[in-house]
Simulated assay, not measured.
Amino acid sequence: MTFPIGPVELTAGELLLRPPDERDAVEALAMVRDPDSMLWNPAASVVDVASARDWCKSLGDWSPGDHATFSVVDVGSGRLVGNVSLHKIDAEQLTAEMGYRVGAWARGRGVATAAVRAVTEWGFEELGLQRVQLFHAVGNVASCRVAVKCGYRDEGTLRSASVYGDGVRYDEHLHARLAGDGV
C-alpha cells in the first residue's frame, strides 16, 4: 500500500526544499562524488552528468508513493546544498525511513538539521506518519549529531548491519521519532 504523494515545496529558514530535477545534475554529481558522501551515503550509479541527470529525474518522481525526496537549495545563492528523503514509506504501518546528505561546500551550517526537521514534521503532519526512523554507521558522528538534534531517539546499535561505500560492513545506530515525540 502506498500514499498518493504529490510534489510539494517546503521552506526551512534560508533553505528551499523541492523535488529534484535535471537542473540539479551538476551539483548533485559533485555532492555524491565527494569522499564523505561516497563512504557514508553512496550513489554508485551516479558517475557523470548524464547519470546524475537521470538520478535527479528519478528522485523527483514521487508517483510510486514510496518516497518523497527533496533537493535542498540555498535560497540566497540558488545552489544545491543537499538532499533529504523520506523513503520506504509504508502507508499501512504509517512508517518511513529518513535519509540525507549535504554537499561538502555546505557542511557545518546546519543544513541537514534544518532539512531533516522540516521533512520529518511534514511527514507527520501531512502524511500522517506515526514513526520515522533513520540509520547511520556508528562511525558517522556528524549524522548522529543531526539525528539527536532533530529529536530522533537512539534505539540501539545494529551489529554488522550494512556494507558502506568502502565495501566494509559497519555497525549502525538506529534512531527514531514518533509523531508524539517532542524535539
Rank of each mutant, 00 (worst) to 15 (best):
S71Q: 06
V138L: 12
A104K: 14
W55V: 06
A12V: 05
G65E: 04
W40V: 01
A12C: 08
N41K: 07
E92V: 12
G128E: 10
A114I: 10
E9A: 05
A137G: 07
L59Y: 07
P7M: 00
N140M: 05
L134D: 02
A52C: 06
N140E: 02
Q93P: 00
H67N: 10
V132M: 12
S45M: 05
E125S: 14
D24N: 07
A147Q: 02
D36A: 12
R53H: 03
W55Y: 13
C150I: 09
G167V: 04
D21T: 07
V73F: 01
S77G: 11
K149N: 12
P7N: 13
F124A: 05
A142F: 11
V102P: 13
D166V: 00
L15V: 01
P20M: 07
A25I: 04
G180C: 09
W62H: 04
R117T: 11
A12F: 09
P20S: 03
R107E: 03
G139F: 08
E9Q: 15
V81C: 09
V8K: 05
V146D: 06
D21L: 07
V84C: 09
Y170A: 02
R177G: 07
R18K: 14
T11V: 02
T113Q: 07
A142W: 05
T95I: 15
